[in-house]
Amino acid sequence: MSGTLVLFTFLAIVAVASALLMVTRLNPITSAMYLILNFISLAGLYLTLKAQFIAVIQIMVYAGAIMVLVLFVIMLLNLEDEDALYEHIPWTKYIMFVLGAAFIVEMIIITGLAGAPVVPAMSPEAATIGTVEYIGKALYSSYLLPFEMTSILLLSAMIGAIVLAKKRFP
């Protein structure tokens, strides 16, 4: 087994296990902690794919900023009876099983059609695509319009949040 494969196996197991634990834990704070573990293992997976920029961003934005925000909200809300928030529909359980089974069948078909997994050797150019320089150039040349539109979208969301937070309008 090569070093990359060992790393991948380890990180993948951690990622899947933490994702499962995150969904099944009852305590929201514990769930959030497993989500952080999941984000970190994903960042590791990005690193094995030579996407350094995405890996660092994953830690900075998701594991750092967003999860702090999530924890903040969980602690501030201090949910006592979460059950009241759920709408109990009796047949959701069965739909869940059907959808889950459909997903597994789909996976089997896809992996069956593709045959044994073949990991292509990484081309030398692939290593440069993940760098800051490359992403910066791509964002400000070929993807300038989507980039600016995303910025405007985020700005409007920010203004919207402020407007909603203000109780009275002058």
């Binding site: 830690i59 750092g64 900023a65």
Partner: peptide, 8 residues
């Protein structure tokens, strides 16, 4: 990135 980690 990592210095934002301690706050967790």
């Amino acid at each position: 990135a990592v210095s934002s980690f301690g706050v967790l």
